[in-house]
Design a protein around this nucleic acid. Sequence first.
DNA 1: TACTATGCATAGTAACACGAGGTATATCCC
DNA 2: GGGATATACCTCGTGTTACTATGCATAGTA
Lengths: 105, 105
Amino acid sequence: MNKEMLKGTTEVMVLKMLAQEPMYGYGLIKKFDILSKGTFKFKEGTLYPILHSLEKNKLIESFWEISDGRKRKYYKITELGLKQYQVKEKEWQVFSQAINGILEI
Amino acid sequence: MNKEMLKGTTEVMVLKMLAQEPMYGYGLIKKFDILSKGTFKFKEGTLYPILHSLEKNKLIESFWEISDGRKRKYYKITELGLKQYQVKEKEWQVFSQAINGILEI
DNA sequence: TACTATGCATAGTAACACGAGGTATATCCC
DNA sequence: GGGATATACCTCGTGTTACTATGCATAGTA
């Protein structure tokens, strides 16, 4: 996979996942792998900084929780995050349709 | 428009345009603007380096020509460029469908 | 003549994902 | 018990990419 294509789309996908249910970082990595059928292999060096950035911007919130006998840092989306998600999702639609418009002349 | 989403998709779009017909840089910028209905505003600082890079990698070839009383540097796609285009186009399809799969759960 | 659009080019900058490295704990098998 | 593996968190430095800003030149227009 051309990793450069990912740029700018990671945030919207993370927000989407957290809009479904609270999740922790490592779990997100595994889930992305499964949902994308291996197309995306999010690396920890990619995902964790994004989560910290989203939290800093109040789009998500974190809380520690013990589940399955393990300490995990869960993130949940905020109201602001939900709004931002809708904006970003629309951006993706406009963007991808514009590309398809050019590639399918 | 989130400029980051562009990353990795510019090359395939340039190759597609040049697969249609030989074009010169400035003309490509105008054509992208029209075809994408303003979604893409390719800047000269973006496009010219890409054209030079593609030429260096033998994916396109350049030739100077005078048309409309102006000296223009035209680029045409090579056989190698056509093959590369098909690879990149497939990559885009896989990529965008994977994103859509996640965003449309 | 001054301004705008056309047409080429590049040096420096910012944003982003990644590779590589670190720490710690739970589970499984020998 | 001990070692390997998977889980789970984190960060620093690097490379890639598109953009900003700038420069140069010419044709058309007011």
